[in-house]
Design a protein around this nucleic acid. Sequence first.
DNA 1: GGTCGCACTAAGCGCTCGCTCACCTTCGGC
DNA 2: GCCGAAGGTGAGCGAGCGCTTAGTGCGACC
Lengths: 207, 207
Amino acid sequence: MSTAEETAGGEAQAWGEVTPDAARRLLVAAVEAFAERGYHATTTRDIAGRAGMSPAALYIHYKTKEELLHRISRIGHEKALEILRTAARREGTARERLAGAVSSFVRWHAGGRTTARVVQYELDSLGPDARAEILALRRQCDAEVRAIIEDGVAAGEFDVLDVKGTTLAVLSLCIDVARWFNVDGPWTPDEVGALYADLVLRMVGDK
Amino acid sequence: MSTAEETAGGEAQAWGEVTPDAARRLLVAAVEAFAERGYHATTTRDIAGRAGMSPAALYIHYKTKEELLHRISRIGHEKALEILRTAARREGTARERLAGAVSSFVRWHAGGRTTARVVQYELDSLGPDARAEILALRRQCDAEVRAIIEDGVAAGEFDVLDVKGTTLAVLSLCIDVARWFNVDGPWTPDEVGALYADLVLRMVGDK
DNA sequence: GGTCGCACTAAGCGCTCGCTCACCTTCGGC
DNA sequence: GCCGAAGGTGAGCGAGCGCTTAGTGCGACC
């Protein structure tokens, strides 16, 4: 279930769609810098330097530093939503779909931790319009997970007291992986994904 | 189980120990500003302004802006550790102690969200020495929760596959409350605490 | 009631930030 | 062989940053 694209290098993932080449290099450099230091502590000179370009080159491809964050955040959220949507709409029981959704979502947060960190934790650095757009994508992520849990409850597979609260807790648990996961630590992304799928099935009272 | 101190106003909590008055006002102002905008996006002029003082006044009580963050972080972590330690060392079964620890820890993160946000998410803005000191306090938090879970497993109360991983997941779940909890949202800190205690007991296979 | 100590302020220093602008190179089309 | 567009650079602007310093107001004490 884990693909090369998801875990290879962790980071050289979904940016293929960004063109031209120089714009992509700047974007990848920005992801790394934002993940390491945070958006506000990162300078445009640092981003350009990592991409092997002069500070002025950044403004040929992006209007502002914030536009870089916005682009990263949108692409990242679209990827996250795609992962959840694919898992949610597969054939199978609710338990199978929930376990698949959690394990692949967690693998993405662990393996692509650099990207996930920016996507999940730098949201407040966006302006109001950009943030509103991203929050809409988040609500769609929430809806996908909630739909699986509701299916499981309706089918008598799950035993849940508070569907809304449990959905939030499941997503929260997965997202926080991006905060603590360490590539040099004792677990692989696959292992954390498997552990978390088990924990989440317990949370929803899977029988 | 919820005390006035934990939830009153959410924020006017443990800072009583900070003296003199002007130093405390600056510290409280810094907590609010860091929580709203993040450490790097907060200016010393903003902190001093919120405390009703001139920018220079800050440097009478604190050597640098980073010292403010360090002090906030240490006091906050000590409070968090105290909450877990108190719950862990109470009389009772492992299930009772774990439920108590989770519900009070979550209440602290939800009710004192402003403080908790700074404590949990601005760690990387500290220098190496200060960060090392804070990380030691975190490891103690981890040890308290793990001890309860190990007790429960030994007593046959819990059924856990991976004690270390589950401990991490439980703490991760509680900590992330500081990211998403909204005072104007549909839940009170008490309600989230109760929900999360139930979810965590499910995660550890409580019978 | 003079004076000493201290919390505090107004002004500003040196620096780095995000961003701009004048200019340079490369290259496909005629 | 010339030209214009596209993509790049070096230098630097105005602003705002963290922090300092010279000076002020004021209460405690002899």
